[in-house]
Amino acid sequence: MSHPKHTDYNGDKLGMWLFLFTELLLFGGLFILYAVYLARYPKEFSAGGHQLNLVLGTINTVILLTSSLLAAMAVTAVQRGQQRLTMGLLGGTVLCAAGFMLIKYLEWSAKIQHGIFPNSPRLIQGAPGESIFFSLYYLSTGIHGLHVLIGAGLLGWVALKVRSGAIHSHDYVLLENSALYWHLVDLIWIFIFPLYYLML
């Protein structure tokens, strides 16, 4: 049995924000490890950071920022009742996500070809801090990548709901919450990018 559907726009948003906090904290654990180990192995971290591909990292940052913009525009579009535009913008976001994952794939496979991956013979023989750096790199970008996939799946599903008319200008909190989730994915990348690619 279920109660008659009640709608509470603010409540739904509040719940989503709380959930986003938990996601931030999840990555917080990895950032703590990063801070501690950076303090312990500054040289190795900097050596590791220089091996990452800054160009690809930057392109990915631009892609992700663009996708966030598209997601935000989709929210405005649905509020204005522009169904086709909403779907188009959501599609664009998902496309960006795919591009991001593709580049990530290229980056990872290049590293793996050079023998840099957790537990690889090269890292085991190298300086201890280096293996820590790359383990953290793979874990952070890997878990982030997982979130990209989840977020893209979510937005794709929402796009279908927009098409079927289940999400429209009077009931769009699901779209808004999914976009919030997408901004979170973006936000976390905005921390990962400088920590691993830029500042070392």
């Binding site: 938990t22 999840l26 957790p118 793979y138």
Partner: peptide, 24 residues
């Protein structure tokens, strides 16, 4: 809300230590 995510990431780390050998 505030504490459980840290457990989650800790468990992920144990898992990756065992399965991937991350060595953290």
């Amino acid at each position: 809300i505030l504490a459980t995510p840290i457990l989650a990431i800790t468990l992920v780390l144990i898992f990756s230590e065992r399965v991937l050998g991350t060595g953290l």
